[in-house]
Design a protein around this nucleic acid. Structure first.
Lengths: 368, 368
DNA sequence: TTGTAAGCGTTATCAA
DNA sequence: TTGATAACGCTTACAA
């Protein structure tokens, strides 16, 4: 007899008839296997064998067979609610993950994320953040959806600091892809632009260059700051002055890096130019065409380098000296860090090394 | 008094003390507001006003204030469990979703899928044929993993018919991107290659062409069949013979579409050639170089058209007459269909129109 | 070795 | 108009 008096109509939701349900539940597996629902849970979660729980091999097999034949898959919401875990990793981008303009896409990161997540036994939930209007879009509480997963990766240039901080403060495992210091307690993985930038400069000084100019855009993203730091470190390490006139900041490289100015710099003794990679590749684009327009040969008269990868539409040109950001590796490392945080690991951020690319745009400076 | 006898030690999990819990629950909001927990749910979910539920303005305010002052945020796992919907859409590709080579990826579809999913309030779970994430591994039963979502989109050329049919038969909402008739009861969205192919042909006959040849590969994918059907329809509609010698099937276009054969066809009166788009773009590639090699000018002497889009590496050449497959629109439509199926809508498949592309490779035939 | 039942934090139903 | 209370599907402490 059930615990409530029979025959009296009582409040509460009426159960869903098992007939019309697309997804089988543990109770159905249990029925089929002829065991209790709890036993099914024990067997399927692996907690039986793991914790040395006593489950007979026969029962195990019956349960597994039944589960398989029904196509049972645990409900992530229920698992999460009961056990606070469901083997789901979230990925949340503050801009569309698959933008129409492939240039700013997070695709290369996802390659690594996907692989490493699979290796660690997680499935990936792409939280459709700011892709467009709609239910899940911006607004307070948008980030809250990620709590369905065991932890979440965040990608993007602009971050809603407060909301993110709330997640972190609540102890929800979060890792940001890209260095990000403005959110307290936030773990991140970033590319080591400082070392990579230094390496490019020392490669140039190794070839004999003594006057090298950095062309960067005029914003203060961590990535830009780090690249400049590496550039200056490289100069210093080579015994060259790392003064402010080694760097040109320009709001609009196309207008400010002209053939005339390049000619003037060259006349002034500059033999190598370094551009930073940005979303649009504007600095590199401007530098390239200004040099060509100035009639200077590369790498004959001037050497060029790019702190990053060229934009896709310039992929056909000569491979620039510079470095590649190991985006898949960054994604994979982020997953590793997140998995560790989910497992109770400490907050720790990581830098991933970039790989130097000799390219074909740098050579020894012409001796005058 | 609670429903069980007091004083007796009973099995089951011990409740979490309210003191040491990270986040406030509705019950605590209710306590603070002096109402029942159910009322809190009603107020906060907005279901009160939406469904015209009777909630006094005073109660509403008390609840909202209490929630705000406690910093209440709903637990998505609990919501989804209770609502019996996860708001998760699966995306399953039979080849890797994240190939290293971006060109052959499903990226353009994903653009639309992501947008529309966000608009409909769904998040996305990415499954790949190769990865062994989460509960199940690859191999038999691999498709069962998708049951964790509320429904699933399938992409890819090759489909494990039996497994997919099993899902469909179980009433699990499934939509295939691309026409697919071999699985009974499977809903799909496809591109309308028939209409698009017909349109290209009538454009050519409108220019004055009377002998047009279709170069296709020698397999029987639905997409190829449809294109040929549209091509032949176009000929018929223009009062031209749609006989079998209007079509050339070749297993290896590169070897079978040679400059010699093109010259022969041209001498025989053929003034326009149409290739179908395939994965590799082989037909188009072969046609293009054979015509060039034969010394025939385009569109001066012969016109060319492509039933689809040129491969990325040929993007620089002249834009071919033909049509574009609206892949993002296909993805979006697939999501719409899937959402409708999840909501209990009927199975229905859709064709999406392709957009005609005049291009620069077709003109009036030279008058002899 | 297996079964029983509480509890996770919501939503939905019905009675008051 | 509001409040009890069952149910969602799962994990787990404890009893048998």
């Amino acid at each position: 007899m059930t615990k409530e008096a029979a025959g009296r109509a009582r409040p509460g939701r009426t159960p869903v008839p098992a007939g019309r349900r697309a997804r089988p539940r543990q109770a159905e597996v249990a029925r089929l296997a002829g065991v209790s629902q709890a036993t099914v849970s024990l067997v399927l979660s692996g907690r039986a064998t793991a914790t040395g729980r006593p489950i007979s091999e026969e029962t195990r097999k019956k349960v597994l067979d039944a589960a398989h034949s029904l196509g049972y898959v645990p409900d992530p919401a229920a698992s999460r609610l009961a056990a606070a875990r469901n083997n789901l990793l979230g990925v949340y981008s503050f801009t569309a993950t698959f933008p129409t303009d492939v240039r700013h896409s997070y695709y290369p990161f996802l390659v690594g994320v996907e692989q490493e997540a699979a290796a660690q036994g997680y499935d990936i939930v792409l939280f459709t953040g700011s892709s467009s209007g709609g239910a899940g879009a911006a607004g307070a509480g948008a980030l809250n959806r990620v709590r369905l997963a065991d932890g979440c990766l965040f990608l993007g240039r602009h971050v809603p600091v407060d909301e993110l901080h709330r997640l972190v403060a609540d102890g929800f495992p979060v890792v940001h892809v890209g260095r990000r210091d403005e959110v307290e307690g936030l773990a991140w993985v970033g590319a080591d632009y400082v070392s990579a930038g230094r390496e490019v400069v020392t490669a140039l000084t190794g070839l004999g260059h003594r006057r090298i100019l950095l062309v960067r855009e005029d914003d203060d993203a961590p990535a830009s700051t780090d690249r400049e730091r590496g550039f200056l470190d490289g100069l210093t390490a080579s015994g060259l002055p790392a003064g402010p006139n080694a760097v040109v900041r320009c709001g609009d490289p196309r207008r400010e890096v002209t053939a005339d100015r390049v000619r003037a710099w060259f006349a002034d003794g500059v033999t190598a130019f370094v551009a930073e990679e940005t979303d649009t590749g504007a600095a590199w684009r401007a530098l390239r065409s200004a040099v060509a327009e100035a009639g200077l040969s590369c790498p004959g008269q001037v050497s060029l380098a790019l702190l990053g990868s060229p934009p896709p539409d310039l992929a056909d040109g000569p491979v620039p000296m510079g470095f590649d950001i190991p985006r898949p590796a960054l994604g994979a490392e982020a997953v590793r860090l997140l998995a560790s945080r989910i497992g109770g690991g400490a907050v720790g951020s990581t830098l991933v090394a970039c790989t130097f690319r000799p390219g074909a745009t740098a050579g020894a400076p012409a001796t005058p």
